[in-house]
Structures are given as structure tokens and as C-alpha cells.
Design a protein around this nucleic acid. Structure first.
Length: 591
RNA sequence: GGGGACGUAGUUCAGUUGGUUAGAACGCUGCCCUGUCACGGCAGAGGUCGCGGGUUCGAGUCCCGUCGUCCCCGCCA
């Protein structure tokens, strides 16, 4: 029943045919997207990577081909020999709608079981089904478009990096556990029982050693691995654009990344303007309640702690500061909507949410009795609220040392309200550099100061002397790149002096012995003439996700894992044979 | 680890206060049809109501547990 491919050679892609191909003899190959059988006349929508074209089988003129076409079902694989003709009535929905192909000969190359869901862009199949049958999901034109865009962006980035004199250099996948924050994926060693390689969380130390090795400008588009819980924008393995350069000023690195992003955007048909604006971390937190502010809309936060007298604070159990924002046009919010906002605020870590409605008759507030009419007015003015607006103020359940907890809560409400009130202009592409991060973060679980980024992050020169005396005031030479409220990547000017690196390790409370054991080799390398250097890493999956207009990176990853880190198609992770475990000297503990 | 939503035909969903034989659309199968393009018409098949236990005369529906998917917090740049 099936035909061999034999010497048959495809002449054209389905989606490429146009009216200029009129009268051309073609051989097409692809999948049956749809079949419309009118009896003695049969239409076939033939699909390949490039698109869809209509093929016509006429019983009267080509009885053999027509008879064969009647056997076709969805997703059968065929080759069609035929002739392109202009249609009498064109179909404007289709790129190839001006023409169709009159089939002369049909070759059935393969059959297909009925697919569990229809192969079409606006599929409403559950993601679980799509991941299990990923090979079918990948046939959707939208999947092709996303993966093609991903390829084009990455191809363009390689070009830009090459033009700027960067060398792409590979670093090991089987390496050692690194001192960064995330949990490592471990690979047991067969040759050395009881010892493990770690898959890289990033090539951090290797790229710094490449700078010590005098390579000057390095980049790599590389898989990284982190064994942490997943999110819509987080997979356990992901792709980074990793960059490092020697003798850089911060602005040199910014310039490189801006060039990359402007060109990557252009590939996606988006016009981005460089240079990107800068913002200090503390301003981002105070004005937007986030370390990755979405700059596509305003609705800035304002500290309004002063509007709450001590007595009111006691009653409302407000310990720290109060932050507020004015939601334009939300004065008409119902009691139910306010309750929902309060609920949202509480789940975001708020002690309470307090509202002021600016109706035409004057302001009314849920806390007027507690803070007084004067303070209600002051509160509204502080936020620049106008008639018709709703002022939302929040306090935090828990103050966290060195941060504005209330601002972070308010920042989440800002995003929620921005979305709900339709304030976000989706046609905007707002890049932002964040700088001025603190070097340390207080870790409640460790009861100590820990690196906010990784422990090779440079220290602002004039803050160096506070390293031991006032660690919370020390600023890092780190920076983040943010696009539309999504963190794309982060980097820093590194520590290149061995004495500074050792002081930092000491400040982090890492023992000499631990340091020697974990990265003695790196400390040694620092002593052999390390140039000042710095770099950055961008999450490519997120870049492509945003430029493709998708909400999840799974839409731009060909073979994605579920939130439980399972590949539903390959069924990994999986158990292994006892033989394999034996060779590795590993035994599985019973639960 | 915690919170929330969901799980019924191949798929997407509906299913009332616990009550007789669990429905729809698309898809699928067969027949008819020469200008369809989400073709149309006629007929038909298709169900472990995620799984396990409990309450009850009776459970898709209520309760407990468990598994899976998604979103969020923790975690993670």
C-alpha cells in the first residue's frame, strides 16, 4: 500500500508557491493537514514547514490519483506530483491562496494514527497532552515560527559577537560543584566511586579563567543546569548567552549587550533604542516595588508612612513603612473588588491594605476614622491621585532587614492593577539596566550575610573599606538587564585581585580550608596576573519568549519539562538497571 | 516544603440539592456529494467520571487519602 520515496525529489516547499509559479510542474512533500472530499472532486491541504497549499484531485481527469487520495487521512505523509494553476476564486486566508496544485500522481509515503489533538495554531489541547506528544505539537506552524525565531535570534547574536571580536569557546559540561547559590545536578563518576561531577550552573569560573588566559573577549551560547523548582520562566536546563571581557568599563559591557539586543529585536521585527536607561536598585524598589520593574506603565509607588499616626499604626499593627499607589479610574471598584485586592495583598505578604476612594463628592477611606481626614487627603496627594482614582496603601507583615518589604508588596499590586486596568502598552519594549545592588543579603536561614549575586562580584572601590565594618552598606559592581518586567540577565565587573577575593571570602565566613578545597585552583589563578575583567549572562529562553510574545519559555523550548521536572515524552527521569548502578558504586536507599 | 486551580468520550468541555439509561461540540468510522477551503448532508461507534478508600438504600456529585498538570510563595539570577 505504501510507496517508496525512491528517486522522487521535492521541487518546492508548499508554502512558497505563488501566482508567479503558474503552470509550473511541481513535486511537493508533506503532511495531510485537511481533506475535503466532495465526491468526484477532492481537496487536500498539504502542509510542510513552510506552510499550506491546496491540492486538487479530479476523478474525471486523474482517476488513479483521485482513488488513492480517497484513502488519505489526517497526518498521512505524501508526495504529490502536479501542476500549479491560478485559482478562479482565490482564498485570501492563505499565503498560497492565489494558486492550487492539480494533482497528477500521488505517492503515499506513510500512514498515521489519528492524532490525539488537531494540528493547528489555536489548539486548545492541554499542555500535558502537547508535551506528551511533542512531535505532533511541533508540527503546528506556531511551533515552527517560535523555533525559527529562536534560531534566527541566536544566529544573529553569534554574528554580532563575532563582529565585535568575541571568540566562542566551549567550557566543560562535566565539571565540579560550584559555589553559586543553586542546587547542582550531579553526575556520578564510574572511575572514582563516591565522587561526582556537577553540571554547570553557569561557566562562571571557566570564563574568568579564560580572561586570565588572555583570551580577552569570550562568549558562548551554552546550556546551564540548576536543580531548583520550575516556573513558567524557569526550566532546569536553559540556554545562556555568556559573555566575559578583559579591561572593561561597565559601559563597555552595556554597549556590547545593547548591540546584541538591538539586533536580536530587529530580527523579531522590533525596534529597540540604545542606550538603555539606568536605574539604581534602591530606586527600583522604592518607586516600583521590584528589582525588575516593568517600565511600560507608570503608577509609581510613594512612601506614605507619615500619613499614619502612631496610634493608627498600633491599631493596624503596622511595624514598618507604608507604601501606596494611585490606581487611575479605580475609585468605582466595588466592595468585592477591594476585598479581592486585600486578599491579593495579604498573599503577597501584606499586613493590611488600606484604601482611599477619590469620588467626585470627595475622598472616602477605609481608615479615615483611624488616621483622620487630614491624613486621608495627605495620603491621596502624596500619590498624586486625581478624582476617580483609587489609592491603595499597604504595610508589610514582616520587615526584612535592608529592604522595603511594604514596597515589594505594593509592587505586586502595581503589576496586578496595571494588568487589570489595562495600563500596560504591549507594543512597548522597555529595556532597563539596574545597578547599585548591595553586595550582601541577610540570610534569615543562615543568620549571616551572604553574597547577593555570586562571590566573584566586584566591590565598588570606595566601599571596600566597609567590607568588614559595615557589610550592609557595601555596593557591588553588579548589574541586571530587565525587559518589560522580566529579568533577562545579570553580570558584574569581577574581583580580579587575590587579596580582595580572600577578604570577601572571609567576610562571608568561609573558612580557609573550605576555600582551598572548593576553589583553590581559582585563587591560585588569580595570583598569576589576572586582568580586570567583567561580563554578563543573558537567559536566551526568556529573550526568545518575550520577542515571540509568549508567556512561557516552554513555548520556545523544543523539548520542555513539566513543573515537576519531568519530560512527559521521553519519560525522564527514569530508573536505571542495577548493572549501571553497580558500575557507579551506587545503591538506592529505600524510602 | 507551602498555597491555589484543574482532572468526565480521542480532544475541549457541560453535568442542578446525592436519584433512573452520563451529554454537547470537534475529531473518528461508513455512505452520498465536481469548487470546497472550519465544506455540506445522512447514519454510526466511542466512557475504569485520574486512582484508592469511606459515608449512603444510592456517589461523576459529599468526605479522606493519593497521583498528575498548571499558576504562585519558598527556592532560583
Amino acid at each position: 500500500m505504501l510507496d517508496f520515496l525512491g528517486n522522487l525529489q521535492r521541487t518546492h516547499y508548499c508554502g512558497a508557491l505563488r501566482s508567479s509559479d503558474d503552470s509550473r510542474e511541481v513535486i511537493l512533500m508533506g503532511w495531510v493537514a485537511r481533506r475535503r472530499d466532495l465526491g468526484n472532486l477532492l481537496f487536500l491541504d498539504l502542509r510542510d514547514r513552510s506552510g499550506i497549499v491546496q491540492v486538487v484531485f479530479n476523478k474525471e481527469t486523474q482517476p488513479q490519483a483521485h482513488a488513492k487520495a480517497e484513502q488519505l487521512r489526517s497526518e498521512f505523509v505524501v508526495a504529490v506530483e502536479g501542476k500549479v494553476i491560478k485559482r478562479q476564486k482565490s482564498n485570501p486566508e492563505l499565503a498560497t491562496g492565489e494558486i492550487e496544485v492539480i494533482a497528477q500522481k500521488l505517492h503515499l509515503l506513510n500512514t498515521a494514527k489519528t492524532p490525539p489533538f488537531q494540528i493547528e495554531d489555536d489548539t486548545n489541547a492541554a499542555e500535558e497532552t502537547r508535551l506528551r506528544y511533542r512531535y505532533l505539537d511541533l508540527r503546528r506552524p506556531k511551533s515552527h515560527a517560535n523555533l525559527a525565531l529562536r534560531h534566527k535570534i541566536i544566529f544573529e547574536i553569534r554574528k554580532v559577537m563575532d563582529e565585535m571580536g568575541f571568540l566562542e569557546i566551549e567550557t566543560p559540561m562535566l565539571t565540579r560543584s560550584t559555589p553559586e547559590g543553586a542546587r547542582d545536578y550531579l553526575v556520578p563518576s564510574r572511575v572514582h566511586h563516591g565522587k561526582f561531577y556537577a553540571l554547570p550552573q553557569s561557566p562562571q569560573i571557566f570564563k574568568q579563567i579564560l580572561m586570565i588566559g588572555g583570551l580577552d573577549r569570550y562568549f558562548q551560547i551554552v546550556k546551564c543546569f540548576r536543580d531548583e523548582d520550575l516556573r513558567a520562566d524557569r526550566q532546569p536546563e536553559f540556554t545562556q548567552l555568556d559573555v566575559e571581557m578583559s579591561f572593561p568599563r561597565q559601559e563597555d559591557i552595556f554597549h556590547v549587550i545593547e548591540s546584541v539586543m538591538v539586533r536580536a529585536c530587529a530580527v523579531a521585527g522590533i525596534k529597540a533604542e540604545a542606550p538603555f536607561p539606568h536605574m539604581l536598585y534602591k530606586d527600583a524598589v522604592r518607586k516600583y516595588g521590584s528589582d525588575k520593574p516593568d517600565m511600560r506603565f507608570g503608577m509609581e509607588l510613594h512612601e506614605v508612612t507619615d500619613c499614619f499616626p502612631q496610634e493608627a499604626k498600633d491599631k493596624l499593627q503596622i511595624a514598618g513603612s507604608v507604601f501606596a499607589l494611585a490606581a487611575p479610574g479605580a475609585a468605582s471598584y466595588s466592595r468585592k473588588q477591594l476585598d479581592e485586592l486585600t486578599e491579593k495583598a495579604k498573599s503577597a505578604g501584606a499586613r493590611g491594605a488600606y484604601f482611599v476612594k477619590l469620588s467626585p463628592e470627595g475622598p472616602t477611606s477605609t481608615v479615615e476614622k483611624l488616621i483622620g481626614a487630614e491624613n486621608v487627603k495627605k495620603l491621596a496627594e502624596a500619590c498624586g491621585a486625581k478624582t476617580g482614582d483609587l489609592v491603595v496603601a499597604v504595610s508589610a507583615k514582616q520587615e526584612i532587614k535592608g529592604t522595603e518589604a511594604a514596597a515589594l508588596v505594593a509592587g505586586q499590586l502595581r503589576l496586578q492593577l496595571g494588568e487589570a486596568l489595562n495600563l500596560i502598552d504591549k507594543s512597548q519594549w522597555k529595556f532597563l539596566w539596574l545597578t547599585g545592588f548591595p553586595l550582601f543579603e541577610w540570610s534569615e536561614s543562615d543568620k549571616s550575610w551572604v553574597s547577593a549575586q555570586h562571590p566573584f562580584t566586584g566591590i565598588v572601590d570606595e566601599d571596600l573599606e566597609k567590607l568588614e565594618s559595615a557589610p550592609w552598606e557595601v555596593r557591588s559592581k553588579g548589574y541586571d538587564l530587565v525587559l518589560n518586567g522580566v529579568e533577562l540577565g545579570s553580570g558584574s565587573i569581577r574581583i580580579h585581585r587575590q587579596d580582595v577575593q580572600e577578604r570577601l571570602f572571609k567576610a562571608l565566613g568561609l573558612s580557609e580550608e573550605l576555600l582551598r578545597r572548593r576553589f583553590g585552583f581559582f585563587l591560585d589563578a588569580l595570583t598569576y596576573g589576572t586582568p580586570p575583567h567583567g561580563g554578563i549572562a543573558l537567559g536566551m529562553d526568556r529573550v526568545v519568549m518575550l520577542l515571540a510574545g509568549e508567556k512561557s519559555i516552554r513555548e520556545v523550548v523544543a523539548f520542555a519539562k513539566t513543573t515537576a521536572a519531568v519530560d512527559l515524552m521521553a519519560e525522564s527521569p527514569s530508573e536505571v538497571d542495577n548493572d549501571q548502578l553497580d558500575q557507579l558504586g551506587i545503591a538506592i536507599k529505600d524510602e
